[in-house]
Design a protein around this nucleic acid. Structure first.
Lengths: 134, 134
DNA sequence: TTAAACTCTATAGTCACTATAGAGTCAATC
DNA sequence: GATTGACTCTATAGTGACTATAGAGTTTAA
């Protein structure tokens, strides 16, 4: 199949498929006479794997690690588990940060009622003078 | 004061102060004989404002808007309120997304016990075959 | 035959910085 | 007076994971 069909099947954009190839996450496929990329079932599976990982916000560098690991089916998979555990930790950190941020913004928002002039806007005044708790 | 002192006082890096100048978020300060940037109290206040905004994840483009608004003290400040409200909405969206993501990752993680081989790793198998819920 | 839809490569842009190179300046110490 | 270390300057490239664009060639359908 050509790149457009692969894109549709996987939900990746055509550009990002070419980008993954350049970054060596997927192997360069064979080409047609006029130099079009031609993909087979195996290419499709590989890209689906990558897409699933990206849906989970796993970075391209980490996906490369996982792909390498898959090359050695007899080794222990503790690195895989570790990688996922670390991601869950990162998400927890990010959520804590966002909660704080939301608190600060909500607090800030409460400093101004509607129908004020800029001069009297409590939000702008707060931003000038007060640290924001971060 | 020179740029290093301003950096210390505001918690910005020297490079990002120069970057803000290039992006026209702060006005170009006067220079010493040997071309060093020299800042005064007003510059300090301006940068503190920017720093507070950045702590709240307000983008540079939005900070520019706010700075423009501050130039017109008699106009209504509804745009300020709207901007903050939108940010709170964005954070809510992001938190919802992260919660889902965490669910998916936790689910995925449960597919593998420790001390498996890569070949039998339930995580890698899931990543190959199953969509991840996003 | 002509138009739309697809493909190709190469390059620049996104965001908010960070890092680096190579050069000049200043203050303190030997 | 010389040297060292800390500071400053400009200009450029890199980050991550793409997206967008230009300019060219190819395929398919009407």
């Amino acid at each position: 199949m050509k790149i457009g069909e692969l894109a549709k099947l996987t939900g990746c954009s055509v550009q990002s498929i070419r980008f993954y190839e350049k970054e060596e996450l997927i192997s360069a496929p064979r080409r047609s006479e006029c130099n079009y990329r031609l993909y087979d079932q195996k290419n499709l599976e590989q890209l689906i794997f990558i897409k699933h990982c990206r849906n989970l916000d796993i970075t391209l560098a980490e996906i490369k690690q996982l792909l390498n690991l898959k090359q050695s089916p007899e080794t222990q998979c503790e690195d895989v588990n570790y990688l996922i555990d670390e991601h869950i930790k990162q998400i927890n950190l990010r959520m804590t940060g966002l909660k704080k941020l939301k608190g600060s913004l909500t607090d800030l928002r409460s400093k101004c009622r509607d129908n004020q002039t800029v001069k009297n806007c409590g939000i702008l005044q707060d931003l000038l003078t007060k640290p924001t708790g971060q």
